[in-house]
């Protein structure tokens, strides 16, 4: 997987305007999120539109993360990623932000595997 070098540093806002924006989000870097293979590429891919905060709020199974990518493409025109690249993104997301379950106690007997 290719690594992006310094793209954040040289980037300009997508919609450069004369007047200052109503709100200036703070800088965000991949290092703020759980380490793991493919973290940086996943980060830079997703933050093209929104903060990674919205991603890191979630805890989902791999198959539900897969649904999220499909939804991003269908609803928000995220570039369609398939094959190995999709696997890498899903590997990171489902490892860094997995579905949380209780080890014992009440359990959903029908929970999707």
């Amino acid at each position: 997987m290719a690594i992006i070098v310094g793209s954040a540093a040289i980037a300009l806002p997508a919609t450069a305007q004369q007047t200052p924006p109503a709100f200036e989000p703070r800088d965000e870097t991949p290092e703020q999120y759980p380490p793991g293979p493919n973290r940086d590429d996943t980060f830079y891919f997703c933050v093209a539109c929104h903060s990674f905060q919205i991603v890191a709020q979630q805890r989902m199974s791999r198959s539900r993360w897969d649904d999220v990518l499909t939804w991003m493409t269908e609803r928000h025109k995220m570039p369609d990623v398939q094959g190995e690249e999709r696997d890498k993104i899903l590997d990171y997301l489902s490892t860094a932000f997995p579905e949380t379950t209780q080890p014992r106690g009440w359990k959903n007997p029908f929970a999707p595997k």
């Binding site: 980037a11 997508a14 965000e28 870097t29 093209a48 890191a56």
Partner: peptide, 13 residues
């Protein structure tokens, strides 16, 4: 889109 500034911060939630 690729040039969109990388904004944000770590999660607090």
């Amino acid at each position: 889109r690729a040039d969109a500034t990388i904004f944000g911060r770590r999660t607090d939630v």
